[in-house]
Design a binder for these strands. Structure first.
Lengths: 189, 189
DNA sequence: CGGTCGTTTCAGAATACTCTGAAATCACCG
DNA sequence: CGGTGATTTCAGAGTATTCTGAAACGACCG
């Protein structure tokens, strides 16, 4: 392995690790993924530990979490009891998986909460009391804000689903958005 | 102010605060934004401090950060030396601002790093040595991975810019996505 | 079964991040 | 200018998150 390649890999791992914070996952988890992605070949726990200088426990937990996200997979070598892991190599598949998970983990629960919040201030209840003309207006304005927020996330969720669902769709979507993009860009794998 | 409204506001603030982690900002910053958004009216530092039970320093820093993100703005009341803050009320404008900032803070630097990494393993250098047929293949595979990643983020950046730029576009974009992929989708802009 | 190799778990240590509060700074007023 | 009140800053305290390492667990083998 050339020195330049190793350096480039390390650099990539570092850069990907930086992003972690902004994406809401731990640095190490991102680094483990970066490593598997950029190396390309399956690696076992010990390989990962050594290359990233992390503990066995940390490696195990990070790999497990990446499996839960569906962006790495297990494999085995004949006559070897160890488990090997490798990352999804297709960048669009990778991000489809990430979008799928983030919708499920963040957007859906958020929408559920927003619906509940909306139900806390029903418009008709506000109308009952006469004394509080002012309150009624406040509640209506509040409801409008919540409703618009709900609407936004519903649209976002739909876009997400469209991006995620039929494999290969992601690229078409992007191409569409960009107007005329060179068509051959990303045919089926 | 009705009790139900206050409770709903608090709930909204809590939910928005939860999201913070996943979005790479601090909980308090998200809560301050949620408060200003859901209340609608301008509030001064002391109002924020009292409602969220946070220190003056924390409130000041959070408000400053939100100003930097461009999602709240300063205002003043005649004959009052205090500064008041209010959140952008239009949900689509809000998210346009967020997308704009995240592109600038995350995607652009990432792309710059990826270009650098790509330049660390020029294909021609790999071709020089004869001894390492194997290394050459490795480097080419590596370069392909980096190139695909670059391409992905370039597309993402373009989509982002399209979403962000002309005001009002966001909604059209979304509507477009939700229609059944009409042909005229990406006409000139 | 007992042994061996590999994986998972988790309490406590290490680290990173956030918040506080008081002092410094700023801005306006008379 | 000096005074008043608002705002910013930042070192240290407080919290939350992540990591380690060793013990428990699991799985296969002879």
């Amino acid at each position: 392995m050339t020195a330049a390649l190793t350096k480039a890999q390390d650099q990539f791992i570092a850069v990907w690790g930086q992003m972690a914070g902004a994406w809401g996952i731990s640095r190490t988890m991102a680094e483990v993924h970066a490593l598997l992605f950029i190396v390309g070949d399956p690696m076992c726990t010990d390989d990962v530990m050594e290359r990233l200088q992390i503990s066995r426990g940390n490696a195990s937990m990070s790999l497990r979490a990446l499996l839960d996200w569906g962006i790495i997979e297990r494999s085995h070598k004949r006559g070897d009891r160890k488990e090997y892991f490798s990352a999804e190599q297709d960048v669009w598949s990778l991000f489809r998986a990430i979008v799928r998970e983030r919708i499920a983990r963040e957007v859906d629960p958020l929408l559920a909460s927003l619906y509940e919040i909306r139900d806390m201030t029903p418009a008709d209840r506000a109308r009952r009391g006469e004394a509080a003309e002012d309150d009624r207006a406040k509640i209506e304005a509040h409801n409008k804000r919540i409703d618009e927020m709900v609407e936004f996330f519903r649209v976002l969720e739909k876009i997400g689903h469209r991006f995620v669902s039929p494999s290969g769709r992601g690229l078409q979507l992007a191409a569409m958005l960009l107007g005329r993009l060179p068509e051959g860009a990303g045919e089926a794998r």
